[in-house]
Design a binder for these strands. Structure first.
Lengths: 218, 218
DNA sequence: AGTACGCTGTCAGCCATCTGACAATTCTTT
DNA sequence: AAAGAATTGTCAGATGGCTGACAGCGTACT
């Protein structure tokens, strides 16, 4: 249950001069914090690259939501499938109609390979999510999530890894597929067990990753 | 929760003459019913096309398994990720090392597009699986599964759609992520409700798809 | 500095589903 | 046709996690 859909940086790819023209075709768009960017059924399919802020890709049904991933600057996404997209913070992104991108791809085989890599990565992540949903209980998924975040986003300090998640219990619950209450209870349990330490709102310190990895250890 | 990972027929693509050479590079392999074809950790990564029989792509953890999909003749798959692959029936497939396939793809951009379509399709399916796991209960997933199978694989008769699933309760359970016992109980419930009708082992008749679609309707 | 709002912690009750057990049925093999 | 194996039906008990409720905190506004 990683958060990043793709570690491949399309930006880099696009900086090559042969893509100059492509870059010009992107339009800059801004969305305010909390705004819905795309909902299934919209017919304006877009390919876009994150420039600033975070967005959430999620599935929704009635009043329940499940976050597939959180994307940040440098990440790329294509509206598609049944997933919704919403801005977590104020967001800036570079967008282009999917159709145009497709046409462009035909003439630029190298781009295809990048896309294939990204899709492959996405697929691996999806499998990872499924794996967690099927085999792990809520404690396990939470621990797993913290570990991945720590590895990807944590800052090493003398007292362990410092993690600025900047998320409410409710958002966390939506990621691992649980309820606010349960997540709250388990996190406190982790704290009592000493595997995690709340430093502030959405900020945690992990003294020992291995301990967290096999929580609950008994 | 569809069963087919891909409706795109690579076979067709490969029949074009420019792929003659590629086709020759595939090796025919046979596996007996029940045999494990690939487990994560094997380092012989393969791309392969199903020729005969069915295989199961699944995640496994300790003694629990979850089937991601069942593939049949014409379907393509690449060993990858954490998924296991096993033969359900006696199986024949055409295989090629992933590396060679990659090299080939560089020189044949048209092939890339096919691969992108397939990956996109796979991704959509994965989202669909996640959707089911997160939002639906076992009854819902079962009903959903039957509906998809009926639409894809069923034969229309005067008394409804006839479905030869050729699967045990246990295999069914592994697909929807449940237990043998629960599936058995629910299917009997469906039968009592009249939305489904067991004709024989693994063979069902669905008098009315809509009825099944919103089971349990009350 | 006070009020309002959103976030958090905790508890009790509930329910879907899993597990294990065992019997009944159906297929396979000899 | 009989023995053995695999598959199915069903039940009782255990349980993880959900829901709703409510109180305590923080934060932000004005």
């Amino acid at each position: 249950m990683k958060t990043k859909f793709s570690s491949i940086n399309l930006m880099q790819e696009l900086q090559h001069k042969e893509y100059e023209q492509l870059c010009e075709d992107f339009t800059e768009k801004k969305y305010q914090k909390g705004r819905l960017i795309y909902a299934p059924g919209h017919d304006d399919d877009l390919v876009f690259i994150m420039k600033q802020g975070r967005i959430r890709i999620y599935l929704a049904m009635e009043d329940k939501e499940f976050s597939l991933t959180i994307l940040g600057p440098g990440d790329i996404y294509a509206t598609h499938t049944r997933a919704h997209v919403a801005a977590i913070d104020d967001v800036t992104l570079l967008a282009m109609p999917t159709m145009r991108f497709h046409r462009y791809m035909v003439d630029h085989p190298a781009l295809s390979r990048t896309i294939i890599s990204i899709l492959g990565e996405l697929l691996k992540q999806s499998f990872s999510i499924i794996d967690n949903l099927v085999f792990k209980d809520i404690s396990g998924r939470l621990a797993d999530f913290f570990c991945h975040e720590a590895e990807y986003d944590g800052r090493q300090t003398e007292e362990g890894i410092l993690l600025s998640l900047d998320m409410t219990m409710e958002q966390l619950a939506a990621i691992i597929g649980s309820s606010r209450q349960t997540v709250s209870t388990i996190i406190n349990g982790m704290q009592r067990a000493g595997v995690i330490c709340k430093v502030g709102r959405g900020v945690y310190r992990i003294p020992n990753l291995d301990l967290l990895k096999n929580f609950p250890s008994l």
